[in-house]
Amino acid sequence: MTDTALESLYAYPPDRTWVTANFVSSVDGAVSVDGRSAGLGSPADKKIFTLGRELADVVLVGAGTVLIEGYRPSARLPIAVVTARGTLTPDLPLFTGSAVPPIVITCAAAGLPPLPADVIVAGEDEVDLAQAVSELAARGLHRINLEGGPRLFGSMIADGLVDALNLTISPLLAVGDSSRIAHGPVVPPVDLELTSVLRADDVLLLRYQRRNSRSTTQP
């Protein structure tokens, strides 16, 4: 496919707030090899990962993923980090030399140190994710690219906040004790429809959308 066709296929719908999750998984469901997702990567997966950022207004990610994957600032769009604990420190690579200030979404009980970021307090003891999405939308950040990790993804699903999933299936059997792509409270299964399938050698690039997705128009 041409880059233009690929952008059209993966484009966010206009005039609404929309959360698209991006994950890579082995055939047997692992989300990491030796603790990191890079072991599952491929040029095709990297292209879709990069495209997800190019099309989005903001990256949404959990603090654990930021620490494990060594997140660094983006040159174009803000990275919004969700944390309910005081695990973030101002010396992390994400906060140093950033042209676009990061966003930290936390709760009142987290006890974070002062950070060079736009800090959003959403909730008292836990992060209110619906409020977090609303706060991002209020800043004009309607196209939300959720990059992980599994616990944040699971919580977003439980709160009914995920509209679509881009899932890369890596042609590996990873076995081990790696987590699945979503981990969290038990909720009724969410019905998805398959919107596209691409193949790059032995890698599958799948796109799913929630069958009865939210229809939140922009203010």
Rank of each mutant, 00 (worst) to 15 (best):
V27D: 05
V31S: 01
S32V: 02
S32M: 05
V33W: 09
V33A: 13
V33I: 15
V33T: 13
D34N: 15
G35V: 09
S42C: 05
S42D: 04
D45C: 02
D45W: 07
K46T: 13
K46S: 12
K46H: 07
I48K: 12
T50C: 01
T50G: 07
T50W: 01
R53P: 03
R53Q: 12
L55C: 04
A56F: 09
V58L: 08
V59T: 15
V59W: 05
V59M: 15
V61W: 10
T65I: 11
E69R: 12
S74T: 09
A75G: 07
I79T: 15
I79K: 13
R85N: 14
T87K: 10
P90D: 11
P90A: 10
D91L: 03
A99G: 12
P101F: 09
P102L: 02
I103Q: 11
I105E: 07
A110K: 10
G111F: 11
P113V: 12
P116M: 11
P116N: 06
A117M: 11
A117K: 14
D118N: 14
D118I: 06
V119M: 08
D128S: 02
L129W: 04
V133F: 00
V133E: 02
S134L: 08
A138S: 15
A138Q: 13
R139W: 05
G140I: 11
L141G: 05
L141H: 06
N145L: 01
N145C: 10
L146V: 09
E147D: 14
P150K: 00
R151L: 02
L152S: 01
L152W: 03
S155D: 12
I157Y: 08
A158W: 01
D159P: 00
V162S: 00
V162I: 15
A164H: 01
A164V: 04
L167D: 02
L167T: 04
S170T: 03
